[in-house]
């Protein structure tokens, strides 16, 4: 087995003294794609937030990224080490244009000031791939974006930042058929051309179809109860989570 990119051991996560995630163990090797499934309220999004370093959650246990302990590290440092989280509900920042935000984030991550016109060329190419209209770059970050446009803008960020691990939290929820196709194409580009690793939190299989899936995890009530290969996704879609819920109770 290749050396892990992300390795969680005995990870416990709580918010305001209420424990939400229990004894999580997770291994993601470079370039691997993992899918995280589970019933509503199982704690899947919490895991995404906690891995990214949200200050709302208190985390104990061990979390190694590229062999380095990152528990307690703030989100910006985790991002700089190569992590990315696509938000289920991306935040709006009025007055901060998408383009200038992307440019300062890229400069911040690489430590190199990018030339505005070169950056614009690069950004426009990715926007074209995702069919995001160019005038959106001038708009405030996510301000006035439809649900689908927000998700596409998250994928745009992922493709420009080129993280080593991208956590996608319900990126396909609330999207129409066209948007799903474009988002899936963006993820496929990241997976196959950039060789990036993925942890995809999802309910449905719509964005998974064009992707190679290495592992599938099932979460119930804050615990990872079962792990399998790509075929597990189809199985869940056929028979739901009952079997896994029973597993948790047992």
């Amino acid at each position: 087995m290749a050396e892990a990119l992300l390795q969680a051991e005995h990870l416990n996560v709580s918010v305001e003294d209420k424990q939400i995630l229990f004894d999580i163990g997770l291994n993601i090797a470079p370039g691997e794609t993992h899918v995280l499934m589970g019933p509503n309220g199982a704690g899947k999004s919490t895991l995404g937030y906690a891995l990214m370093g949200s200050p709302r959650y208190k985390t104990t246990g061990s979390l190694l990224f590229k062999g380095e302990e990152i528990v307690g590290l703030p989100a910006d440092q985790r991002a700089k080490k190569g992590m990315f989280l696509s938000f289920q509900e991306p935040l709006e920042v009025p007055g901060l244009s998408l383009e200038s935000f992307l440019r300062s984030a890229v400069s911040e991550r690489t430590g190199v000031k990018v030339r505005p016109w070169e950056f614009r060329k690069q950004m426009r190419k990715v926007m074209e791939l995702l069919e995001i209209s160019p005038e959106k770059a001038e708009r405030g970050l996510n301000v006035g974006f439809s649900g689908g446009e927000k998700k596409k803008a998250e994928i745009l960020q992922m493709l420009l930042f080129r993280p080593d691990l991208a956590i996608l939290d319900e990126t396909d929820s609330g999207l129409d058929v066209d948007a799903v196709r474009l988002v899936a194409e963006g993820i496929r580009t990241y997976q196959q051309e950039a060789g990036g690793a993925l942890l995809i939190i999802t309910h449905s299989t719509r964005i998974l179809d064009p992707l190679r899936i290495d592992r599938t995890h099932i979460m119930v009530d804050g615990s990872l109860v079962y792990e399998g290969d790509a075929s597990l996704v189809a199985k869940v879609n056929e028979s739901g989570y009952d079997e896994f819920i029973a597993m948790k109770k047992a």
Binding site: K80, F84, L91, E92, V93, S104, A105, E108, R109
Partner: peptide, 14 residues
């Protein structure tokens, strides 16, 4: 706080 975390998750300091 959510917006601050969102920007931080992109590599921008608090």
């Amino acid at each position: 706080d959510e917006a601050v975390f969102y920007l931080m998750s992109r590599g921008i300091s608090e």
